[in-house]
Amino acid sequence: MRQRISAVVIGASWGGLDAYSRVLGKLPANLPVPVLVVQHQHPSGGDKLPWILDTRTAMHVVAPMEKEPIEAGCVYVAPPGYHMLVDVDHTVCYSLAAPVNYSRPSIDELFFSAGHVYGPGLLGVILTGANDDGAAGITYIKQRGGITMAQSPVTAEARTMPEAAIATGCIDQIHDLDDIGTVISELVFGLGA
């Protein structure tokens, strides 16, 4: 099965900062697709995550404004307090609609909107977390023909989120945390040719 990947979406909650550092740290600066990430955070905690992640990866990390074009080689980090969505013209779209799974940003909201836009070209990844946000979204990515991946729960700081994703029956691949970055990179380059 050869499948051209056009975007990667990743969701994490509890333990996400360390997980993101280790996953994004393995991605090269010239990754030919955009990466969009949701990390659950408290709305009053400030918007420092993009700056922290920027020190951990060779990719260009962006704290996007709304309508910002989504471009290859960049990591887009959802700000606290907003749902981050992908719009049909491949720009960032924000919403203050009610929290989903008690979360805003919600992983499901990103995954549903990205699944709609990128269809079979989307790679969705669920990392560590202590709730089941992302399970519905990863199911939709699978329904749209995309590729789905979860962190192996034994390597997760909180296993609820990857377990909930795996329990949907819609996960194609399960990998240890330290392998995920490399696998993403291989999928994007190897199958994208």
């Binding site: 749902h83 969505l85 719009d87 919403s95 609609a97 909201e109 549903f112 709609h116 836009v117």
Partner: peptide
């Protein structure tokens, strides 16, 4: 209105 968020709210 912006298509992505409108769509999410209609489907919700």
């Amino acid at each position: 209105y912006s298509k992505a968020s409108l769509r999410r709210r209609v489907l919700h």
